[in-house]
Computed example of a mutant assay.
Amino acid sequence: MTSGHTGNEEGQPGIAAAALSGLCPRCGARTLFAGPARFAPKCRVCGLDFSRFDVGDGPAALLILIIGALVAGLAIWLQLTADPPYWLQALIWIPVTTALVIGGLRIAKAALLASEFRNKSGEARSGQ
């Protein structure tokens, strides 16, 4: 399979597919996560050690800023256009914000881990 990327071997999912579906970047099995946004220790299928990868807090910080600005803007817009009671605003925006942060964090962390694996960077090189 020729795609122009030196790390793309047969059977490995692309970064977008791995991020959106929580796929192991080596074998493509749906084994990346053990919780809502927590990586599994290793792939149950191919044995890839996910703990070698360090995605850090970059995805979380960026997502909080983006989602916070988006939700604040939408909440202000809703308040100015429909004037709902404050309890309704809380009832709407607390679950929406939580879902967006957890969903976005899963995608961002998975994309970063898949990218590290694909590019053989840092911790991904050690132990292979």
Rank of each mutant, 00 (worst) to 15 (best):
L80D: 12
D54F: 13
T81P: 05
A72R: 02
G68S: 05
G73C: 09
L70M: 13
A60N: 10
I107W: 03
R38P: 06
A99S: 10
R44Q: 14
W87F: 15
E116G: 07
A111N: 06
L20K: 07
A90P: 04
R125C: 07
A37G: 01
D54P: 00
A69M: 14
C43L: 10
K120G: 10
G47A: 03
A40R: 05
A99V: 15
L80I: 13
A60S: 14
A111H: 05
L23C: 02
E9T: 10
L70W: 15
I102S: 07
A111E: 12
T6G: 03
L91W: 09
C43Y: 09
G22L: 03
L70V: 13
Q12W: 09
A17F: 01
K109L: 04
A82C: 04
A75K: 02
L112H: 09
A18Y: 01
E9V: 08
M1Y: 13
T81A: 13
D57Y: 08
G122R: 12
S51V: 08
A18H: 03
K42M: 12
L78Q: 06
E10W: 13
G14C: 07
W87V: 15
H5C: 06
L70K: 10
A18C: 09
L23P: 00
M1F: 14
I66W: 02
D49W: 01
S126R: 11
R30H: 11
A16R: 12
I94Q: 01
I64V: 15
W77E: 08
S121C: 04
Q89F: 15
I64G: 03
P36M: 05
L88G: 12
A18R: 01
L32R: 06
V55C: 08
D49T: 04
G103Y: 05
P36K: 04
F53R: 05
V96Q: 04
